[in-house]
């Protein structure tokens, strides 16, 4: 305790045990001989009257605005007029109050003692005594009851009481490792149109979902047409493949590996995808390797296939968990085969 470590300091007080007023606390208010009834317009009735009229006029404005507000409400309401009238009403009322307080109400500075805000040593000692009387009775003979029984029992019961919290949500399980993409899933647009291999032109970008799971939060992917651009060295644990019959189309998870926003700003000139939330930048030609910003990992690629009728499908789910990292993610290699690039 600080009180024992450092000398006890009593500030802003003079306890009853000290000084002249021992036993009777110094009155915690204004000493009686200070006159603070003066106010600026006390001795000028004419100006005071004018000030009263001014204040009354201001408060009149408040009343007028109040009536106008009712009229505005009655006629259907209009946000800007409502706001303006409220400004008028409250501003006029406030200004009137300030003028009133400033010129017509006494408010001279006065000086008072701060009085006590701490207790005297005797009072403190009395508390210690009361406390230890009870504590001693509890602990002196039957300490085991508290230490050996009550504490462990309380702990066990406390943990039991926390149990219902588990009902709030499922265990993460494998949710974070998989999306709704499945082998053979057709790529569909938001309005449930299957995507044909010729739909996206070079430098085009389209948001796609697995058929049957439009709107699923983990599954959105971006389909890009990189044309004949030279694909560079794949990056990291993730491979990068461009399906030969796919007309230059590649598909990546739309969920940012940093914080999970939808990555979809597409800079066609540098072939980069950018996240609008924290500006993580991914180089598409390097398999969406992060080249700027806080994203630590590439966007997982969706392995594409082209059906005989020209419609696109997913050969497999993403090979890596999509989205931001989590504690168990580091062990993902045992669940996901490495793609040969």
């Amino acid at each position: 305790m600080t009180a024992t470590k450092y000398p006890r300091i009593v500030t802003g007080t003079h306890g009853p045990e000290e000084g002249a007023g021992a036993g009777t606390p110094w009155p915690d208010d204004v000493p009686p001989d200070q006159d603070d009834t003066w106010y600026p317009l006390r001795d000028d009735p004419w100006r005071a009257r004018r000030m009263e009229y001014l204040i009354a006029g201001l408060w009149g404005i408040t009343a007028v605005c109040g009536v106008a507000l009712m009229v505005v409400y009655w006629t259907g309401g209009q946000t800007q007029i409502e706001g303006g009238l409220l400004v008028g009403a409250t501003g006029a009322l406030g200004t009137g109050l300030v003028l009133w307080a400033r010129f017509l109400l006494p408010g001279h500075d006065v000086t008072a003692s701060r009085g006590h805000h701490v207790s005297s040593s005797q009072e403190r000692a009395a508390v210690v005594e009361s406390l230890s009387r009870g504590t001693d009775a509890m602990m002196s003979r039957r300490g085991f009851l508290v230490k050996k029984v009550l504490v462990p029992v309380g702990g066990i019961f406390g943990i039991a009481a926390l149990w219902p919290l588990a009902s709030l949500g499922p265990r993460p399980g494998r949710y974070l490792y998989h999306t709704k993409w499945y082998p053979g899933a057709r790529l569909v647009t938001e309005d449930n149109r299957a995507v044909h291999v010729s739909d996206v032109m070079v430098d085009g970008l389209l948001t796609v979902f697995p058929e049957g799971y439009i709107g699923d939060a983990a599954s959105p992917a971006v389909l890009l047409n990189i044309g004949g651009a030279a694909v560079q060295e794949p990056y990291g644990e993730q491979g990068f493949e461009v399906e030969s019959g796919a007309n230059g189309l590649v598909c990546f998870s739309k969920i940012c590996t940093h914080a999970g926003c939808a990555v979809s700003l597409f800079n066609v000139l540098s072939m980069q995808l950018i996240c609008p939330c924290h500006q993580s930048t991914f180089d598409v030609l390097q398999g969406c390797k992060p080249v700027f910003g806080p994203a630590p990992r590439p966007l997982p690629q969706l392995p594409l296939g082209v059906r005989a009728d020209g419609y696109l499908y997913a050969k497999h789910d993403f090979y890596q968990p999509i989205g931001p990292g989590f504690w168990n993610r580091g062990g993902d290699n045992q669940y996901f085969p490495k793609v040969s690039s």
Partner: peptide, 20 residues
């Protein structure tokens, strides 16, 4: 440290506060 200088709560300070 032992005294306090200012205006009383009633009436002026209270009215000012309502104005605020």
């Amino acid at each position: 440290e032992k005294n306090i200088v200012g205006s009383r709560l009633w009436p002026q300070y209270a009215i000012k506060s309502q104005a605020l």
